[in-house]
Design a protein around this nucleic acid. Structure first.
Lengths: 213, 213
DNA sequence: ACTTTAAGTGAACACGTGTACGCTCAATTT
DNA sequence: AAATTGAGCGTACACGTGTTCACTTAAAGT
């Protein structure tokens, strides 16, 4: 009843997940992950793998879930930073970049499977990104008093840009990463101005838009 | 001297490229492309493959190049549409979405290898995207009289959003695709307004920015 | 104490993979 | 006409893959 058995099982399950994480790298993605190699690194026989996951796919989906979880935990940190009175935009971008920096393997997994070859994977990642977007959207509605519609457009654009920049950051050195961060902050501020202009001056701004076609 | 030999070689080379293209699909990406299957579909022996490409990697890079080429040809079409006096934003977005629609396999290849496991591939795709961005940037400087700096920020943001939307479009039905298109147009207009506000009212806008932190 | 359950094992299978090697034989060059 | 070149072929090899099956052996349930 001590659950020593269940505990051991959970332990090797974690070992498998950890082993899979370790094998993910810039050169070696989930697609080329091998059951046998993962089992070897986890210290169990290849066949024992099936006691924990039905498929490699199931393992992969678990990794995606954990990645999304980490990402959302990060979001909360970011909000705390905002509460302390910093700039939302700067805080969000820098914490996101830190996430990419500290969880390279997991971010790369999310990124690759976002446009990968398994529909189920793509949808799992899409779900995580949607969480991300909708929390940002809620923030824009609640704290910044944007309309739902405008908040949705803004949040969606921001998340797209930030994820895309995160992807570039994977291959960048520190200096380039810094440049990307500052660039992104500028871009998000442009979007903020645009959204602001859209809500505060809906009619006059239409002319400005027409002016540039 | 008729070059009948060279012609034949080029022909089977095209056959290999075409075969590779055909095997690319939502479920079966470049990573899991097999030399033997490609050779089989091209109608040659597996070993003959090496008469044309040193590696599968070399074939892959060829595919990326061709994809980028197609993409830039498309850009030109898009400009023609603009010259005819439509909205730049609408024209660009719709032609891009059409490209994704008509060249699904090639766009997916670009997208996957953009964050794929071969550094060489990633850089090849990055180069293509940069072409895309810098042409848009030039347009914004030349035709819309933005400063270089502001044009760069704008172009970069736009391309990131558009590629990201293109990715989503791959899994979308026609109705959803239409929604994505309209949403993107709105988003790019917000960016246009933001950029406009930034250049016309650099100082007052700072306050607006501070207001939303 | 006896039975059941289930995590972990090891051997074996069938299969697809990339690629090295030596060959053919038609197009090209000399 | 003779020599050379090179695209394409068939065989063979060594290897890693996922998965099956019948097993051991402790923990958990009775």
């Amino acid at each position: 009843m001590a659950g020593i058995r269940a505990a051991q099982k959970e332990k090797t399950r974690r070992a498998l997940i950890q082993a899979a994480m370790n094998q993910l790298s810039a050169e070696h993605g989930y697609a080329s992950l091998s059951l046998r190699e993962v089992a070897r690194e986890a210290g169990i026989a290849p066949t024992s793998f099936y006691r924990h996951f039905q498929n490699m796919e199931e393992l992969g989906l678990t990794l995606v879930d954990e990645g999304g979880l980490t990402l959302r935990q990060l979001l909360r940190q970011s909000r705390q930073q905002i509460a302390k009175g910093g700039s939302i935009i700067r805080a969000s971008v820098t914490t996101f970049m830190e996430f990419v920096n500290n969880n390279t393997a997991i971010f790369r997994l999310l990124l690759q499977e976002k446009s990968g070859n398994s529909r189920e994977f793509r949808m799992a990642v899409a779900r995580e990104v949607e969480h991300f977007t909708s929390e940002l959207e809620d923030y824009l509605v609640d704290e910044q008093k944007f309309t739902r519609e405008l908040a949705e457009l803004q949040a969606d654009a921001i998340v797209r840009i930030v994820f895309s920049v995160g992807a570039d950051a994977l291959d960048a050195d520190n200096k380039e990463r810094q440049r990307l961060t500052e660039q992104t902050i500028h871009q998000l501020r442009i979007i903020a101005r645009g959204a602001e202009a859209t809500r505060t001056a809906a009619i006059p701004t239409e002319q400005a838009v027409r002016r540039q076609q």
